[in-house]
Design a protein around this nucleic acid. Sequence first.
DNA 1: AACAGTTTGAAACATGCGTTTCCTTACGCC
DNA 2: GGCGTAAGGAAACGCATGTTTCAAACTGTT
Lengths: 214, 214
Amino acid sequence: MAQPDTVTRILDTAEVLFAERGFAETSLRNITSKAKVNLAAVNYHFGSKKSLIQAVFARYLDPFTERFHRALDDLEARHARDGSEIPLEELLETMARTVLEVPAERDSLKVFMRLLGLAYSQAQGHLRGYIQSQYGEAFTRFTELVRRATPELPDAERFWRLHFILGSVIFTLSGLDALRDIAEHDYGERVSVHELVQKMRPVVVAAMQAPLPD
Amino acid sequence: MAQPDTVTRILDTAEVLFAERGFAETSLRNITSKAKVNLAAVNYHFGSKKSLIQAVFARYLDPFTERFHRALDDLEARHARDGSEIPLEELLETMARTVLEVPAERDSLKVFMRLLGLAYSQAQGHLRGYIQSQYGEAFTRFTELVRRATPELPDAERFWRLHFILGSVIFTLSGLDALRDIAEHDYGERVSVHELVQKMRPVVVAAMQAPLPD
DNA sequence: AACAGTTTGAAACATGCGTTTCCTTACGCC
DNA sequence: GGCGTAAGGAAACGCATGTTTCAAACTGTT
């Protein structure tokens, strides 16, 4: 079994350690020693630690945005034919499916979700800027479709509700393992990610369709 | 105007810097220089950086849990008299009110929320353990009351929905400033925290009352 | 006024960090 | 076969960190 090359070994190790402890708490020495790679290799191949962090994200987000755009293309084309609007459920479904598909191929959903959570909360400045510049367009496209699917909602209201939901999803899936352990201990049954997404579905729809506040 | 004493100056400064940049990214030198206090003062008064972090949390969470327990005592006593169950809305309302009350006195809701978000995501190990051991009981009490208020929900389902909501709240309120800026820029009106809580109310209720998944 | 205990201050300590340097090894090409 | 470029390895650099030390300043008590 030939080892994967240095760049891949660094990325594989780095994403796991970042997901476990965060960026600042993970040193290049942690990464390189666990990856069985020379310390200087990170700076040689990636330039700096910041660039390594961005590369870790790009490895997930590049395929994600590509698939996501393709999926939205399909969805739009299909509904353009009969002139109907894309229903909210289909949009949410597409988003969920794509989020799950990408890391599924490497069995790393947990890592991907933790990284998303970190990107949001640890917001290293440079990371937030990078993600916004590289992947903001996909999010903008999605929200515009959601707008057309929920014309009854005031714009500001829809904005906030989308972020409520985003919070639920990232929070839950990024703390997945810990929560799942508690749930298993307290209620005896271990849920799969698939089941969890199933549980979220009606909640998310209900959240979007909740009555307006007085 | 006499300066507050050293311990208070350290805590006041530390909580702001922690909330802005996180724990690892904030050095003792950052804190002590901004607080105009000697570097050694942190180790003298708190023992270590870890203990300082815990002290920052305790200054919010101690009053919070005390008030929260008192508020739940009231609620239980009031309903014990006529034998009725406490409705879900009242429980959520009590939680929200207490969360808002404590930092309101020091005009630091933003800081408190960011800290909660960090506690969850940056989970420094020691912090999670500390918070769980010190304040887990209050959360347990609350969930038990929610259980009685929503007897139609399977236990596991309620568990997960509570965490969906917890995610929404922490995520939204901890990223409050950034989100509010975006919302203001895109939709023109700046919402107050009070208005935001008002927006969350129907969403949260709808989430708890959503139909069960197939 | 003198003393004991507490708090502050400046400096040093040891350590771990990201990064750079420089040398060796490996590989592809004329 | 030798040469040029790419990759790997060992060591060091400069710096920032949390923590400790120890003397000076302060505080309250007798």
